[in-house]
């Protein structure tokens, strides 16, 4: 469904990604794990076309994305929930969700999607008119995921959804990601929380200093000696 081939990317002189190959098939949860600065977020920023790669190709259902502007990528059904939530601080919960369905084709489903978001995150339903910037980190993360769902994503790109959340909320968020996937949305997840994310993933990639060093089914990687040593401290 989503295919990344030989992706190279540099911020100025600093090369961040080296020949990254990655594939996401319909219906999967695919995770990219790696330490801070390994280049995980940069992969997602490339897919969403917020930045331009030095070389390599990214295709979505056979369509090359290299000349597609970022707002069109969203129209194609690739929706990113960015790192650090990035919700609109001076907009209410409802307004933030409405922005998630800015793309014309998704506006007709607005009411239905909003109901879906409120049933996944009952907390948001209680805070419809609260300003996004005044909510707690966990609530902001729920809002960010909810806002992403408003755009009828075919592939949802999630950038460190567990960042800065309490352990209980972390487990909660991963359960919800699994649920969203079960309801039919393909997921490409980027995480530092290796244990939790590998547990829910069909397949995963390990990224180290911009290179894919390992890949395979999530459960298999959990048992991998290198992964255990490098990320899980066992």
């Amino acid at each position: 469904m989503l295919q990344i081939r030989k992706l190279n990317f540099a911020y100025g002189d600093l090369q961040v990604l080296w020949d990254v190959d990655l594939e996401v098939k319909q219906g999967e949860i695919v995770t990219v794990v790696g330490a801070n600065g390994a280049g995980k977020s940069t992969i997602l920023r490339n897919v969403s076309r917020l930045v331009r790669p030095a070389s390599g190709s990214i295709t979505f259902e056979g369509h090359e994305l290299s000349h597609v502007p970022s707002h069109k990528v969203v129209e194609m059904g690739i929706v990113q929930v960015p790192e650090a939530r990035r919700i609109f601080p001076e907009m209410t919960v409802t307004e933030n969700l409405r922005m998630g369905s800015f793309v014309k084709a998704t506006r007709k489903d607005r009411e239905r999607n909003m109901e879906r978001v409120f049933s996944l995150f009952p907390r948001l339903a209680e805070r419809k008119s609260q300003l996004g910037g005044t909510m707690s980190g966990g609530e902001q993360q729920m809002l960010a995921i909810g806002r992403g769902l408003m755009g009828n994503p075919r592939v949802m790109l999630l950038d460190e959804p567990s960042l800065g959340l309490s352990p209980l909320l972390v487990r909660n968020i991963f359960e919800i990601i699994k649920e969203i996937n079960r309801q039919g949305t393909t997921i490409l997840l980027v995480e530092q929380n290796v244990y939790q994310s590998l547990r829910i993933s069909h397949r995963a990639y390990v990224l180290e200093t911009g290179r894919v060093v390992l890949s395979g089914p999530g459960a298999e990687l959990l048992d991998n000696a290198h992964v255990k040593k490098a990320f899980l401290g066992i």
């Binding site: 969203v74 990113q80 960015p82 990035r86």
Partner: peptide, 10 residues
């Protein structure tokens, strides 16, 4: 409020 996030909304 957030140019990048706005882009990600399409």
């Amino acid at each position: 409020q957030d140019r990048d996030a706005a882009q990600l909304m399409g």
